[in-house]
Structures are given as C-alpha cells and as structure tokens.
C-alpha cells in the first residue's frame, strides 16, 4: 500500500457500495432463506386457518358461544363444539397471571435497578433469566405435585375461611384450579416481563430521577410520579408480551388447571384453556371433525396471541425511540 492510503481507501470503499448489479450468489442465498421463512410464516397461518374452516362452517358462532363439547362420531351433524369455557378460562388464567406478574415484576425491576448494589444486579438478572430456562413441563409437574396439594391443604381452606370466601373464590375441591394455573403462569411469564421492564426502567434518564428528588420527592414519589410514567409505554408493552406468553402456554396449564370443560368464574374452581384443551383432546380428535374444531380453537388462539405480540413489539420499540430521542 502506498503512502496515499486514505484517499485510495475511500475510493475503494465507494467503488463497492452494494448495488443491484453487484448482487452475487451470497445475496441470493441470504435472501432466499429470508423468503423461505416468510413463506413458512404465511403457510403457518394459512394451514391452521384452513383446517379450522370446516369447523367454522359447521359450528358457526357456537364455537365462540357454546359450552358443550360433544363429538357426533360417525354422524358429524350431531357434533357440538362450543369453545366458550376455553375462551373464558384462557382469559381468567391470563388475567390472574398478568396481574401477579406485573405487580411482582415491576417491583422486581425497580429493586434491581434502584435498590440492589451494582454487583448484585447481574446476579439478580441472571437468576430471573434462569427462571425462563426451566422448561414449562417442569413448572407443570411442580405445580401439580407440589403446589396443588398446598392449595388443598392450606391456600384453599384459608381463602374459604375469609368472609364471603366461598362466594368469591369458590369452594376448594381439588388443588388444580384457575387460580393455580394463573399462579404458575405468572411465574412462567415473570422473566419475560422483568427482562423488558428492567430495560425500560433502567433507560429512564437519571436526570429526571435527580430532578424529582431535588424537588423534595421521596423515593416512592419519584418512582410513582416520574419513573413509572416515563416508562409506561414500555411497561405496557412488557405486559402485553407477557400476556401473549400466558395466553398460549399449554402443558403446564394442562397439569394444573383441572381440565374440566365448565364455565367457571371462581378462582378455586377448575377450568380449561384454549391451548390446554387442544393438547388434552388431541388423541381422540385426530381424523375427525373434532380435530377441525381444535384447529378452530388454535386459530382463535393464534389471532389473539399474534395480535397481542404485534402490539407489544410496537409498544416496546416506541418506548425505545421515546427514550433515545
């Protein structure tokens, strides 16, 4: 290389700007991988909807409003597939999960960012990440074999002993219940929520915290009036992301919810969710019109979770651009 390197380099660099003409094998290989994924994604949505169509045609609105699930066997005309209990069960367990996860998760993120000494922050963050690495079936087994007996022996009787406890929570029968499912889901989505909310809270400019404190605000006033409002969009996104996870969780829920197709609204009663019903009915449904009905529940779940997931990514990226402005 000559002494005149810098101009040479610049010219060389400018001569090789990527352009349509310079596209080689490499660019096409990379592009086709991306294209393949796009096709898979479309095919994914398409095939679930396609298999759901027969059920939608035969059952119509009953899929959303009906409560009995009866296969007509050889005479499909007698089949009744109502998904209302699954829909309400999904909403109930997800709500319980999201309330617990948001409250505990926000507190955790605040503690990690504002209370822990810096050397403990990494440890705490890794610990929460480890929670996410535990397979969902393990949480299910733990919930079923360890927590469910606790609900029968301690938590249930305690809730029932409260004034009006039977009316509000329902009478405890088995440990497996909407409440237990919501609780296990909360533990499972907590890492998702904390990962985002920790980032959101950590990104609140330190100058705002100092401004708040230097006006005489207490630590909590600073959190409540400055930190949380500044991060609210991102926290909402984190909550939506966690909600998406909770909606679609399957095997853990099967093991702790009781799997009873009933329209139940009290937390100590058993129930069922869209995903758990698909998993538990699958064996007997294959090849029959019931399978299409399960695909229809799947399509509903897909619409809900993809919608929530889409909204949450938008919210989180909006928060990022708000803070980095």
């Amino acid at each position: 290389m000559t002494s005149n390197t810098s101009t040479d380099l610049r010219q060389a660099a400018e001569g090789h700007r990527p352009s349509a003409a310079s596209r080689g094998v490499y660019e096409y290989v990379v592009l086709s991988a991306a294209g393949l994924f796009a096709i898979i994604s479309l095919y994914f949505v398409g095939s679930i909807v396609w298999q759901a169509l027969p059920a939608i045609r035969h059952q119509g609105l009953y899929l959303l409003t009906g409560t009995s699930w009866v296969s007509g066997g050889a005479t499909p005309a007698l089949s009744k597939f109502g998904g209302l209990s699954m829909i309400t069960g999904t909403i109930e367990t997800s709500l319980i999960a999201i309330v617990i996860a948001v409250v505990v998760g926000t507190g955790t993120s605040l503690a990690i960012n504002l209370l822990l000494p810096s050397w403990m922050r990494t440890i705490a963050a890794t610990t929460v990440e480890l929670l996410a690495a535990i397979p969902s079936v393990v949480y299910g087994v733990w919930g079923m074999l360890v927590l469910a007996p606790l609900v029968i022996s301690t938590v249930g009787p305690f809730l029932n002993s409260l004034p009006g406890g039977n009316a509000v929570f329902g009478t405890v029968v088995a440990g497996q219940s909407l409440l237990l499912a919501g609780f296990v889901l909360a533990i499972m989505v907590l890492p998702t929520y904390v990962a985002i909310s920790r980032e959101v809270i950590g990104a609140v400019p330190h100058e705002l915290i100092e401004a708040s404190l230097s006006l005489g605000a207490t630590r909590w006033q600073t959190i409540w009036k400055t930190i949380l409002p500044t991060g609210r969009v991102g926290l909402l996104g984190a909550g939506a992301l966690a909600l998406g996870r909770a909606l679609g969780e399957t095997v853990a829920v099967v093991l702790v919810i009781g799997q009873v197709n009933q329209l139940n609204f009290r937390p100590l009663q058993p129930g069922v969710t869209l995903a758990s019903w698909i998993a538990s009915q699958w064996g007997e449904a294959i090849g029959s019109d019931q399978m299409n009905a399960l695909f229809a529940l799947g399509a509903l779940l897909m619409a809900a979770s993809l919608g929530v997931s889409f909204i949450s990514t938008r919210l989180v990226s909006r928060q990022r651009s708000l803070v980095n402005r």
Binding site: E207, G216, P229, T230
Partner: peptide, 21 residues
C-alpha cells in the same frame, strides 16, 4: 433529605422537564 432538597433546589446541565407532564 426530602426537606433539605425542598429548601435547596437544583437546575441541571441539560433541561430536564418531566416529559410526561
């Protein structure tokens, strides 16, 4: 400290009004 800081105010290098207010 809360009382102290309400008696001694502070203005910072970069303008930092609360963005959500």
């Amino acid at each position: 400290t809360t009382v102290l800081r309400s008696r001694i105010g502070m203005v910072f290098q970069r303008p930092n009004p609360f963005p959500t207010m």
